[in-house]
Computed example of a mutant assay.
Amino acid sequence: MPGPMMRAIGVDLGSVRIGVAFAPADAAVAVPYEVLERSGTRARDHEALAGMVAEVAAEVVVIGLPTSLDGSEGPSAAAARAEAGEIAAALDVPVVLHDERYTTVTAERILADQGVRGPARRKVVDKVAAAVILQSWLDARD
C-alpha cells in the first residue's frame, strides 16, 4: 500500500553545486527544479535551500546519501549525514536520507539519451541527479 502523497524536495549535495528536484503532492514523478551554486558558506546555502522548500511548500526533504556499491558508508556518506543534520536544523520539515548509488550515472545517461552534451550537461546534471534520488525515494514508498 503506497504512503500518502506529499510535496517533496530532493537534494543532491555536491561540493560545488547542490541539485534540487521537486515532486508535487498530486504527482508521483520527480522533476529537476534548480541548481544552487555553493556560496562558500554552508549556512547561506542552507538558507537558500530553505527558501526553495518554502517556495514550493515542501513537506519533506530527501537528501541523497552517497554509499559505496556494496552499501557501506565512507567519508562522503559521513559528510552528507553531517550536512543533512545542519539542513534539518535549518528547516521546519522532516529531512530524510536516501541511498543515491548510481544517481549521477543515471542522470548522465538520461541527459546523453536526450542529446545534452558538454557545458549544457554540467549545468543540469545536478538537478537531474536530485530528481533521480527523489524518484527512487518516491518509488520505494509504494
Rank of each mutant, 00 (worst) to 15 (best):
E100A: 05
H46Q: 09
A57V: 02
T103N: 05
G71N: 03
V56E: 00
D139F: 08
L97M: 10
A43W: 04
A88N: 10
A120W: 06
P94T: 03
A23N: 07
L138Q: 08
P32G: 09
G40E: 05
A90S: 15
P75A: 13
R44M: 12
L36A: 00
V53F: 01
A57Y: 01
A90P: 10
E108C: 07
I133H: 14
V20D: 01
G14P: 13
E59A: 09
E86I: 01
L36N: 00
M5S: 13
A89Y: 07
S76W: 03
S136A: 14
D99I: 04
D126K: 03
P119W: 00
A54V: 00
G10T: 13
P75K: 07
R141N: 14
T104K: 11
R38E: 01
E100S: 05
F22K: 02
V95P: 13
D99M: 09
A131I: 04
R122A: 15
F22V: 13
E100F: 01
S39G: 15
L69G: 12
A30R: 08
A84S: 15
V105T: 08
D113P: 03
V60Q: 03
I110L: 15
H46G: 01
Y102R: 11
A78D: 14
E59Y: 04
G115N: 10
R121Y: 01
M5I: 04
D113E: 14
P75V: 07
T67I: 14
D113C: 06
D126N: 09
V116I: 15
R81W: 07
L91M: 12
